[in-house]
Design a protein around this nucleic acid. Sequence first.
DNA 1: TTCAATGCAAATCTTTTGCAATGGG
DNA 2: CCCATTGCAAAAGATTTGCATTGAA
Lengths: 159, 159
Amino acid sequence: MKKLSEFSYRRLLKERGLKSTRQRDVIIQVFMEAGDHWSVDELYQRVRQRNPKIGYATVYRTLRLMAESGWASSRQFGDRIARFEHQAEGQHHDHLICLVCGKIVEFESERIEALQSRIAHKKGFQIYEHKLELYGHCSDCLAKEERASKKIREKTERG
Amino acid sequence: MKKLSEFSYRRLLKERGLKSTRQRDVIIQVFMEAGDHWSVDELYQRVRQRNPKIGYATVYRTLRLMAESGWASSRQFGDRIARFEHQAEGQHHDHLICLVCGKIVEFESERIEALQSRIAHKKGFQIYEHKLELYGHCSDCLAKEERASKKIREKTERG
DNA sequence: TTCAATGCAAATCTTTTGCAATGGG
DNA sequence: CCCATTGCAAAAGATTTGCATTGAA
C-alpha cells in the first residue's frame, strides 16, 4: 500500500487551504505508518504515545478530513466501529474477514469487478464504489479447530 | 421474498420454547408484511400504529430474536443503522444502493459467488457469509441529473 | 491579527441492559 | 404459579458538536 510522503501531505494540506499543525502532523504520520483497518481508538492510542495532549476529537476530525480528501477511507466490518485504510487512488481491494480471530486479508479480482459492472449496467446503475466482504474462518483458525476436534475424537475413542 | 405464515411463526416460536405474546405477534406480523431493508425505527413506527404501547426495546429484542432464529438478517449500508431483511433459507442476494435517493435493489450472481469461493479457497479461508454492495446512482437519479444538466446547457447557450 | 484548529465536555444517535411489573402456558 | 417477556429509563459505545482558547500563517 502506497504511503504519503511527508512532503506530499504538506502540499496536499496547502492545496486545500488547511493548516499544518503539531497535532495533524502527528496524526497523519501515525496513520501513514499504521497498517490498514485500524480503528480510531487504535490510532488514537498510538497518537497519545507521541503526544498525550492530543484529544480524541482531533483524531476523529483529522481522520474525517483525510477521508474527505481521499487519502483515507473508512469502513465497518461486522461491528459498528469505523476502520481506516490508506487510499491508493484508482485502486480498490476487497476483504476476507476471519470471524474467529478478526484477521483481515485483502484481495483483488478484476473478474469479479467486471461482473459487477455488467450487473449494475443491466439494472441501470452507474457505480462509484463497491464493497465486497467474505466472512469465514481463516486457515490458522481452521487448523486449530481441526486439532481441537481431533483431541475430542481421541478422548472419546479412548474413553 | 418468501413470507412466514402465521402458522409457521407460531410453530417456530414453540420449537424454540418461546412464548407468543401480544407484542411479538404484532412485531412479527409487521416484519412479515414489510419490505426488505427496513430500519428498526421504520418497523417501530409501523408497530406503534397497531399498538402504541409497545416499546422500542421490545422491537429490538424481537428483531434480534428473529435474526438469531434465522428468519431475519440485519445489515448496515452506508450509515450506522441496522436494516433487516427476510431470510429465505439457503438463498443469498446482494445489493445495489443509490447514493442519491437511497433506493436498494437486490441481485444475485452465481458467477460472482463461484469466483468468491475460489479466491477464499486460495487464501485458505472457509467462507460462511458474504456481503457485496455496489454504490452508485440509479437510473431514475441519472435521468434527473441528465435533465438538470441539459437545462443548464440550454440556459448557457441562450444567455 | 485573524480565523482555522484544538481540547474538553456535553450532546447525539443507535443499540443494549437492569429491574420491577406483567402475563403466557 | 413460575419464569419468560415487557416497558421504562438508564447505560453503553461510537461519533459529533458547541464553545472558549490557542496558535499558524
